[in-house]
Amino acid sequence: MDTYTEKIRSIAGSLLKEGKVDRVIGYKKGSIPMATNPFAARTVEQARELVFNSTCVMNLANYITDSSETIAVAAKGCDSRNIVTHIVENKIKRDQVYIIGVPCSGMVDKRRIIEEFGSDLTEFSENGDEISVKSLDKEEVLKKQDYLRDCCTTCIKPNPVVYDELAGELVPEPEVKNRFASVEKIEAMDPDEKYQYFTDLTADCIRCYACRNACPICYCPTCFVDESGPQWVGKGQNETDIQTFHFLRAFHCAGRCTDCGACEEACPMGIKVREFTKKLNKDTSELFGWDAGLDQTKRPPLDTYSPEDPDDFIK
């Protein structure tokens, strides 16, 4: 994916030079291996700092909301779907955003690499389908395919769904056998097992709200967990309050979540936050034939009122 870097730089450079956009949002190399940070280039010079590789996990759709500027953004499949959601939800206008589409072959699961190599990596590089990782005590060349983030293995749209220009050839649409296998596993449990599963899952939560902050669709000026009048949910480390936060956040994402994985990536405690949202993705997909971020003209199914609603749940 390194090849994209040059293309992104040249597109960004000419956009800024011609004054077509006020800034270009992309990634910049971080200070340690495997780190790439979101970066807004405002000048042609800064545009040369832009990079793109398999560690560009942050969802850039986060950085384009509530702005009056014209913004270009390097968007992977998931980012582009979130941009669509933003357009639908009035966070940005379509003509205000210039989308540099980046066909994506998946992002590397940094957490796993660190687990296997220790946190003091000295070098990380990639070459086509292979990644090479060096730490103080070992060095290995790995197949990238084996080290993808979980959400990338079930991704159905790695290509941008909307773009003004492409930074590379579209990648073939993957065949995902069953993107909801993890959900089905839980669905098969009995109620007590399920409850235990989620209790264990959220046990480590420290309520830092990193998942919420990393999520592009969590943009409310005041989140319900921060409100005090009315106080929807307790603010302490109470088990029920923690679960309430996770359940309600997931419900707010119903029909809007693109399964970009930003929440899980952000969690410092390694909680599989997507276990909540994934269920709702499955339900909206099955009940309404809906996957978030594919259509700029339609609102998510839970956002609309229609007299023709099937209402099957009402008895």
Binding site: K194, F198, Q243, F251, F313
Partner: peptide, 20 residues
């Protein structure tokens, strides 16, 4: 909603929607 409640292990029968 019912699906989510069920998914986290609360029995489905505890929640009910009806049009009366």
């Amino acid at each position: 909603m019912g699906n989510l409640i069920e998914h986290i292990g609360i029995e489905r029968e505890r929640i009910h929607f009806s049009w009366i």
